[in-house]
Amino acid sequence: MKMNGGLGPEAPSCAARFRVTGAGRAPGLLLVLLLSGPAFAVADPKEMLPDPQQEARAEAIGSQLRCLVCQNESIEDSNADMAKDLRAIVRQRVVAGTTDQQVIDWMVARYGNFVRLKPPLMLSTALLWATPALGLLLGGLAAWWGRRRAVEQGGPAPLTAAEQARLRELTGAE
């Protein structure tokens, strides 16, 4: 893994992050980007496209693309030098009139599917995309199984006198 120095000439915020993490000084807190310098993306107003619609499109595309030298940040959110370059390329291509998918494909051709924050549906990500449906399916099955088990056990077992007294106590005044 490339550490400090390998990221960009103007030591971007991400580099600081690598440095600290590399030194084993990760704090024990449970919050995102704790060590990240505050990313201050699109820090330069000149970077933005003059046409607000094109700029919005570029931002939408950029937020789907991962900043390669950062941890789980899109190129829109990152202040890293590399992210800045990629942002500029996205904007150039948006102005040139390419489709969103073409811009993403252009990035994938260079950096692989790693660059996509939303992985495409393919064999290796089938399980990932199936998770919501699988969760519902398994949950439904468990509920059905639990109900069948309860019915098989004869439904609400006849309460003993002591249990009935307890039940009255439990449900209280209701």
């Binding site: 937020s63 991962r66 599917n113 924050l117 939303k118 992985p119 290796s124 990932l128």
Partner: peptide
């Protein structure tokens, strides 16, 4: 896990979670 079992490098970020969590 994908890296370990299939040798493929992928990222899973905010756009995925938004898309998958919202319908639930």
């Amino acid at each position: 896990f994908c890296d370990l079992l299939l040798g493929e490098k992928i990222s899973v970020g905010a756009p995925f979670f938004n898309a998958a969590v919202l319908p639930l």
